[in-house]
């Protein structure tokens, strides 16, 4: 396996700063916004965006955690994936939900996340932000905020590693 560092710590931080500004620009501030991170790494990215918005707008947005396992379309094709807790302690009705994930690929995770949110309420809007968009969509879903684009070859894999759980910030491309 060959390993190539695609984004380092600084590049990840700059990318998140840009996404943060795009969120604020598109929504003309942060009124009525809330952040929801998709487990596992989306949660840490959402937390970092929350911190950045706080330092820019002096306002702390509500932050929720979404586990999409119960909504997967391939749930029983896998070997009983562990279900983790969803923790959204605020009302999402009529809010603009900014959904955050680390990597966007087929779009199936996002589909599951949208269905999960709809069961929790009726948000005014749902927008999607991802750190890496690796292409190869299987559903008509696209991110509103994409950090970097990388068209992945069939023998390649994108891995996002974050210091909160992996000990280090980097996006790496693994190839056979």
């Amino acid at each position: 396996m060959k390993k190539k560092v695609f984004l380092d710590k600084k590049a990840i931080d700059r990318t998140l700063t840009r996404i943060t500004h795009e969120i604020l620009e598109k929504n003309e501030g942060c009124d009525n916004l809330c952040l929801i991170g998709i487990r596992t790494r989306g949660v840490y990215l959402a937390k970092r965006i929350q911190d950045k918005i706080k330092s820019i707008e002096k306002k702390e947005l509500p932050l929720g955690i979404l586990d999409i396992t119960m909504y997967r379309d391939d749930i029983f094709k896998l070997k009983t994936p562990a279900v983790k807790k969803t923790d959204i302690s605020f009302d999402i009705n009529n809010k603009i939900v900014i959904l955050i994930d680390d990597v966007m690929h087929t779009g199936r995770t996002t589909r599951a996340a949208i269905d999960a949110l709809m069961d929790l309420g009726r948000p005014q809007k749902i927008q999607l932000g991802v750190l890496v968009d690796r292409g190869n969509r299987e559903l008509p879903i696209h991110p509103d905020y994409a950090g970097v684009l990388y068209n992945v070859d069939t023998d390649e894999e994108v891995l996002v590693r974050l210091k909160e759980i992996d000990g280090k910030d980097e996006v790496i491309i693994m190839s056979a």
Binding site: M70, Y71, K85, T86, D87, D119, L120, G121
Partner: peptide, 14 residues
């Protein structure tokens, strides 16, 4: 992880 579902307004997941 499943306990929270019974506290929702829509108590159902697919």
């Amino acid at each position: 992880s499943f306990k929270e579902i019974s506290l929702r307004e829509i108590k159902k997941v697919p």
